[in-house]
C-alpha cells in the first residue's frame, strides 16, 4: 500500500486525532492542560518523540523480529524521551519544571506505541516520519484546545505565562479574556479536565456529523 501523504496529514490532525477520536494518551491530555501554554508544550514534546521514534522504527523495521518488537519499541521510545527530557532540562528549563513528571511518562503514553505498531512497523521511512509528526501535532492541537477551554473558563486568561515558558517571542499571545477573579476554579482542578475532554469529544462528533461524516462511537478500545 502506498501511503497517501494528504491522508496522513488529515488523519493525524483531525480525522483520527489521537485524543478526540482514538482516546489515546489521555493522561497528559488531562494532567498537563491546566493552561493552553502547558498543553502546547506537552504536545510539542510528545510530537518530537513520536516523529523521531516513528522514523527509527521504520528504518529498522526489517531487522526487528515480531516476537521482540514491543520491548524494542519501548526502548526506542524511552531513548527518545530521555533525549527530549535532557534537552528540555537544558534549554527550556521553566517549561521542564512545569511539565515535570509527565515528560518521562511519554514512554508509557499509549499514543506513540500505538502508531509504531499500527503504522511505522509496516511503512517506509518518510510516511512513517510524517505520520509520527502529524499525529504528534494533532495531539498538540488537542492539548492546546483542552488547555485553552480550561484556562479561559477557570482563570479568564489565554496563554498566560507563554513568554516565561516558551520564550520572550511569545509575549504577544498572552491574553486576558475575562476580568480577574471571575473564573470557575473547578475547571483548573482535576474534575474540569475530565469534563472539558468529554465535552470536546462531543464537539468533535458534532462537527464530523455536520460535515456528513460517520461519527466514531467507541474510539480505539485500548486497554493499555
Amino acid at each position: 500500500m502506498t501511503a497517501n501523504y494528504k491522508t496522513i496529514v488529515k488523519d493525524g490532525l483531525w480525522d483520527n486525532n489521537g485524543v478526540f477520536s482514538m482516546l489515546l494518551g489521555m493522561c497528559p491530555a488531562m494532567a498537563m492542560t491546566t493552561s493552553a501554554t502547558n498543553g502546547f508544550g506537552m504536545g510539542l514534546a510528545t510530537a518530537v518523540v513520536m516523529a523521531a521514534s516513528s522514523l527509527l522504527v521504520a528504518l529498522f523495521r526489517n531487522l526487528i523480529t515480531p516476537e521482540v518488537r514491543i520491548p524494542v519499541y519501548i526502548l526506542i521510545v524511552a531513548a527518545m524521551v530521555t533525549l527530549v527530557d535532557l534537552a528540555m532540562n537544558a534549554w527550556m528549563h521553566e517549561l521542564y519544571k512545569v511539565l515535570g513528571l509527565f515528560i518521562p511518562l511519554i514512554v508509557s503514553n499509549c499514543l506513540p506505541l500505538a502508531r509504531l505498531e499500527a503504522f511505522a512497523a509496516k511503512q517506509p521511512v518518510l510516511p512513517s516520519f510524517l505520520d509520527g509528526l502529524f499525529m504528534g501535532l494533532g495531539f498538540t492541537i488537542a492539548l492546546t484546545a483542552i488547555g485553552a477551554v480550561r484556562e479561559i473558563t477557570g482563570n479568564g486568561t489565554l496563554f498566560a505565562d507563554a513568554s516565561l515558558l516558551l520564550g520572550p517571542a511569545f509575549k504577544a499571545i498572552e491574553m486576558r479574556l475575562l476580568p480577574a477573579d471571575t473564573g470557575v476554579l473547578m475547571m483548573i482542578l482535576p474534575p474540569g479536565g475530565f469534563l472539558v475532554t468529554g465535552l470536546l469529544v462531543v464537539v468533535k462528533r458534532l462537527l464530523d456529523l455536520r460535515a456528513g461524516k460517520e461519527i466514531q462511537m467507541g474510539g480505539a478500545h485500548s486497554v493499555a
Binding site: L23, P191, G192, G193, F194, L195, T197, G198, L199, V201, V202, R205, L206, L209, I215, M217, G218, G219
Partner: peptide, 14 residues
Amino acid sequence: LFAGPPLGFIVASL
C-alpha cells in the same frame, strides 16, 4: 452524541 467515552468522562468528572 454523548454515548460511550464522552459520558464516561463526564461521570469521571463527578
